[in-house]
Simulated assay, not measured.
Amino acid sequence: MLTAIAVLMALSIILSAPLSPATRLQELLRPRPHDDEPRRGGRRIREDSEQEKLWAISAVENCAHLLRVGMTPQAVMSTLSSQNALLIPISRAISLGEEPGRAIATRGVGLPSAAAEVFAGMSAVWTVSERSGAPAADMILRYARAQRSAVDADRERQIAMAGPRATVRVLSWLPLIGVGLGLLIGVHPVELLSGLPGRSSIGAGLGLYLVGRWWMRRMMVRAQL
């Protein structure tokens, strides 16, 4: 009976082991699935947020290029709104005479949060360029490049953290692996609870395990900042 339990524990550990680095990298770089596919918690939310931000950055880059070739702000936003209906309120406000920076800041409430953040920065850059007399196209393009660099840096950070996360998962399974190995060699862990030394060692082990988990999680969170 104990041997069967040990075998089942070993199989569960093997099946739940973290993916290889190559497979993990492919998962991180996998393109966004269709909307009808199931979502997977925080990681899927992060990927959706990244895709929204990348779309907004592309729109900002297109805006800068269109301004550079001589198109008016009204024509630029009309062109962008024809590609995405979420920008129609901004285009309409500019066509009614509102300043581009103000229109983007006040009429972009229907945008997704990640995209709205990018457009909010764009509105500030556009307003500053108009008031200072600097070329709006150049400043907006520099802002878009800075945003894209930030997204790339965040993606590289997530890829770099894949290895430590896998290591933490492996270390989390080590206590169960030790119990399984003990059962395989004929040790009965239940007998450890009959004496004070056994209970003390198990209590200390659980305490150190929880402290180690907290410490590792704290280090990973600080590494992502």
Rank of each mutant, 00 (worst) to 15 (best):
S20W: 13
L8E: 11
V179M: 09
R107Y: 12
N62P: 02
I202A: 13
P197F: 02
S113R: 12
R39G: 14
G70W: 08
M77K: 01
S82L: 08
A115C: 12
L176W: 12
A136W: 00
A120R: 12
N62H: 08
S78A: 06
V211F: 01
A10Y: 05
I57W: 00
L183N: 02
A120Q: 09
P189D: 01
T72R: 08
R131S: 01
L96T: 11
E98M: 09
A144M: 02
C63A: 07
Q83D: 09
V221G: 00
A64H: 01
H34V: 13
L225A: 14
A114M: 11
A6Y: 07
V211E: 00
I57M: 03
A6S: 12
R39D: 14
R107C: 15
R131C: 00
R39C: 15
M161N: 11
R155Y: 02
E61W: 05
M1N: 15
L141S: 11
A22W: 09
A114K: 06
G186Y: 12
D138K: 09
R107W: 09
D138W: 09
A64R: 00
E27F: 09
M122G: 02
L181S: 12
S123I: 05
V128T: 03
G203V: 04
P189E: 03
V221E: 00
S20M: 11
S149F: 01
S91D: 02
R169M: 14
L87W: 08
S123W: 03
R40Y: 15
L29Q: 13
G182L: 07
L206E: 08
V60T: 05
I185R: 06
A137T: 06
E27Q: 14
M219P: 00
R142I: 03
E99M: 05
D36M: 10
V211K: 01
L8W: 11
P197L: 04
L225C: 10
Y209T: 07
R30G: 08
R213Q: 13
I185C: 07
Q83K: 13
I14A: 13
A160M: 12
I104V: 15
G198K: 01
S78L: 03
P100M: 06
A59V: 11
G110Q: 14
D36H: 08
T127S: 14
Q224A: 15
W55C: 02
M219V: 01
L54R: 07
P112T: 04
G207N: 11
A162E: 13
D138R: 05
M219L: 10
I13N: 08
Q83A: 07
A144N: 02
G212Q: 03
W214S: 01
T127R: 12
S172A: 11
L181E: 12
V187H: 06
V187R: 05
A6M: 09
A114L: 10
L86W: 11
Q83M: 12
L208T: 05
L2W: 10
I90G: 04
T106W: 06
A124N: 10
P175V: 02
H65F: 11
A124I: 03
L141F: 13
L80I: 11
I88W: 06
S58R: 06
A56S: 05
W215L: 00
